[in-house]
Design a protein around this nucleic acid. Structure first.
Length: 341
DNA sequence: TCTGCCGGGTT
DNA sequence: AACCCGGCAGA
């Protein structure tokens, strides 16, 4: 019998919130059989104490079932996960406001909150600027990018066959983007998990929890590039592709980084041949529309002010009354760093 | 009117 | 550098 345990995460899984939360944290604890569905439904890279991604991975090593049974279990488990993911109980009421793909979209945080948890707004400590936990701590990464997941940002939509995926490292202060899952897994194994290259086969899949998929529709990307004009945010529904720059400079390749990257940081200090995405990976990479917009020949003397994005920003998400939850940039009335366009 | 955020001032 | 805010401009 496949074990599919579902724990609810305090929506504000975010580090700061998690500190005050003692319930069983979040996580769809899936076994091998449900791994694919699990990967699509929910990654939980930033699970707070008690539900570390690594522990999740290690828990799912039950006695193997016979192949046939495993197949059946997989189906059942996938169905269970799907059902759970679409359950109104989990969706929460306000979900309507956040998703155009309700079935598999990540959940909004607010509705799900453990009873008895503090109603305070928290310390807001998970913003990019205030997140200063020790880099040596092997804590699950919860960079602001994770908020995209938790908040149902379009960047983390489920995989579609017609889409070309990018994979972004969710490790704290990394944010590296690669175009292949295997490459990302290798990156995480080698760089973040400190594993040797020789042991990928022994991987327990833990690295899966430390990256997320950024899907880029090739068509929409092409359209975005061809039809892009400065100041005309294309009508493509939700911004299918947020800027690829991580919110914070990549952590580990610090030796490769320039001494000080001006905000917003870029993926690499290396020169970007196309003026867009630096070749952090040998494989061809799609070009982020937004990032390229600024690289397009702009009218001389034109106001470099970037067009206003459609993304929900901290102000809108949290409201003025919860200003302490805003990212630092929003608090300073600067360009939002948490909800990138 | 609301919102995002640039530009610049203050600490 | 961190922080704050007036004010502009888009929605």
């Amino acid at each position: 019998m496949t074990h599919v345990s579902v724990c609810l995460v305090p929506p504000q899984t975010l580090k700061a919130r998690a500190q005050n939360w003692e319930g069983a944290p979040v996580s769809l604890c899936a076994q091998e059989a449900v791994r694919p569905a699990w990967n699509r439904l929910s990654r939980h890279p930033g699970a707070p104490d008690g539900c570390l991604a690594s522990s999740v991975c290690r828990e799912r090593n039950p006695p193997r079932a016979p192949p046939g049974k495993a197949r059946l279990d997989e189906v059942m488990a996938a169905a269970a996960l799907t059902s759970l993911s679409t359950s109104p109980l989990l969706l929460g009421a306000p979900a309507v406001a956040f998703s155009t793909e309700p079935s598999l979209e990540p959940r909004r945080e607010a509705p799900v909150r453990p009873p008895g948890s503090s109603g305070s707004s928290g310390d807001g400590g998970w913003g990019p600027a205030s997140d200063q936990s020790s880099p040596s701590t092997p804590s699950p990464p919860l960079p602001p990018e994770a908020a995209h997941f938790l908040f149902g940002e379009p960047a983390l939509r489920k995989r579609k066959s017609s889409l070309q995926g990018l994979f972004q490292c969710l490790w704290k202060r990394c944010g590296k983007v690669l175009s292949s899952a295997s490459g990302m897994q290798r990156h995480i194994r080698l760089v973040h998990l400190g594993r040797r290259q020789a042991e990928p086969e022994q991987s327990d899949g833990e690295e899966d929890f430390y990256y997320t998929e950024l899907d880029v529709g090739v068509d929409s990307l092409t359209d975005g590039l061809s039809g892009l004009t400065p100041g005309s945010p294309t009508a493509s529904a939700p911004p299918a592709f947020p800027r690829l720059e991580p919110l914070e400079p990549p952590a580990l390749p610090s030796l490769l980084r320039p001494p000080a990257l001006p905000p917003p940081p870029v993926l690499s200090s290396l020169p970007a041949p196309q003026g867009c995405l630096a070749p952090v990976h040998p494989e061809p990479q799609p070009i982020p529309v937004r990032a390229c917009a600024s690289a397009l020949p702009a009218k001389p003397g034109a106001n470099p002010r970037k067009p206003r994005g459609d993304a929900r920003k901290c102000r809108k998400v949290y409201g003025v009354e919860h200003r302490d939850l805003w990212c630092t940039a929003c608090r300073w009335k600067k360009a939002c760093q948490r909800f990138l366009d």
